[in-house]
Structure formats: structure tokens, C-alpha cells
Amino acid sequence: MKNEFSFQHRHILGLEQFSPDDIHHILATARSFKDISSRAIKKVPTLRGRTIINLFFEPSTRTRLSFEIAAKRMSGDTFNISASTSSATKGESLIDTARNIQAMSPDIIIVRHSSSGAPHLLSRHVQAAIINAGDGTHEHPSQGLLDLMTVMEHKGRVEGLTVAIIGDIAHSRVAHSNIIGFAKLGASVRVAGPMTFLPPQLTSMGATVCRSVAEAVEGADVVMALRIQKERQNDPLIPSLREYARFYGINRDVLRGAADDVLIMHPGPVNRGVEMSPDVADGQGSVILDQVANGVAVRMALLYLVLGGEKSGGEGAS
């Protein structure tokens, strides 16, 4: 890591905005924060006096909890607003909501929204730093980063690895951030799933489209299954979960072609028996819970970096 590296991003909207050096810097920062979570007193004063708002327009337990824990472990003051308690139901526009929150001078607004680009819109209307906690079917940058961190931890590198992402790529912001992140760090990214789950011109994002799960998994160092979103039934994408599990589910059988030390990943929560068999989710090579643990460290790093990375003593101007 270069000593002189300076993180220049005021908002975290997606992995697309980062250079490989940016990503390495975030991951290095996350690693330096990770041990805080294993101490008896899990708290440092880094964000003392900082106000951090979790503005969630979509239901979330783990991402919101992860951000909240990250902020609290750094002594930030956190506040949660979910769509059901906000003015969204009263017809207040997103910008109005954001301006009202801005008037209370928060430092960071962490936003999850069902519309792609909602964090971008907010970033144009508020002074606070915006962190995208998932927007529509666009990106989920902190998830992409925690996945990169997890792979780096277990493999020591990302460059040169083969990563297979299986499932509903079209509607998965996790998949989008992962494709972008792994490709930026030099991994070879393969995707597979029913054609109805593959968005047009996916190769332009740096992924190779495989015709079958077996082909995608062949020799893979990392296999990641995506959650099937059962609520997407207004669009005829797949005939049944049963058929999906049989042809696109990750089980021991299909993993025989993968590398011996293949890592099994899933952004959670797992539909056991649909996109992944229980023995795979809980078995050898599964790092699903490591992903969750690293989520806190990555989010601590993001909170720290968007506020300028000011540690006591400062690091000097660049």
C-alpha cells in the first residue's frame, strides 16, 4: 500500500467509481479495523461526534445492522429511518426527505432504496456524504467490498482467480458490484443462470457468460450463489423454484468440477435447498459467515474514509 495514497471520494455510490488502488486502499483500511470487533471493548473514538443516518426505503436487517454496528464501534451517533416510519408514505419526495434530514446536519447518510440511482440523486441535493447501501438493481458497493475482502483473506489475492457467480444476475445489485469489483482487481468472472436472469450485454461489465452452471464452476476458485427473490413473480422469469434448484442450484455434485479449495459464498439470506443445498451452505469451504463479519470492517472503513480519513494527528495534505 502506498503511503501517500489519498482517498478522493466524497460519496460511495458504487464500485464503478473506484480504481483498483481505491479498492485496495479500502480493503487495507478495513483490515486495520477488523481487530476492533474481536476486542472485549469494541469501541474506538474515531467517529465521536459524527452523526450517521441509516435511511432505508427497503426492508433490511443485516445490512442496516452491519452499518449501525460499524458506526457505533467507531463512536458515531446513529439514527435509523425506515420507509414505514419516514414521510415516504405521506407522499414526501425523496429530495424533500433528504433536505429535511440535511437540515439537521448529519455527516453521513447511508441509503437503501428500491430505485437504481436514488443515492446519486441524493448526492446532488445534500451536503452529507452518501453511502449506497443498495439501490434497485444497480449496485451494493459495501457488499462487493466485503466479498472482495473475504476472498482476499482466504486466498491472499484476487488477481488471477476464477470467480463464478450463479443466479439472478439481472436483478441482483450484489452481482453487479461483485462483477465490477472482481474484474477491477484482475479476477476472471464467470456468470451462469437461466437466460431470463442474465441482463443484456453482460460481457460489457467484464463478465463471461457461461451456458451452464457446470461450465461456470469448472476450475473456479470462488463460487457465489445469489438469492432467488421470490417476490419477483410478476415477470415470468422461471417456471418454478423446484426446476431452478435442479438446474441452477449449487450442490456437492456440481461443485466437483471446481477447484479443491473452492470458496462458497452467498450474500444471504440463503434459501437453503433452492439456490444452494444446505450441506454446501454449511459445509467445507463455505465462508458465508466470514462475509458477514467482514461486512462490519468494510463498513467501518467506508464511514471513516468518506469523512476524510481523519485520524488523530492527521495524515497531512496530499
Partner: peptide, 9 residues
């Protein structure tokens, strides 16, 4: 197209 895929729209 490629851009709608990238923008998640």
C-alpha cells in the same frame, strides 16, 4: 443494452 445493465435500470 449495455448501459441499462450497468445502471441497473
Amino acid at each position: 443494452g449495455a448501459l441499462s445493465t450497468r445502471m441497473g435500470l
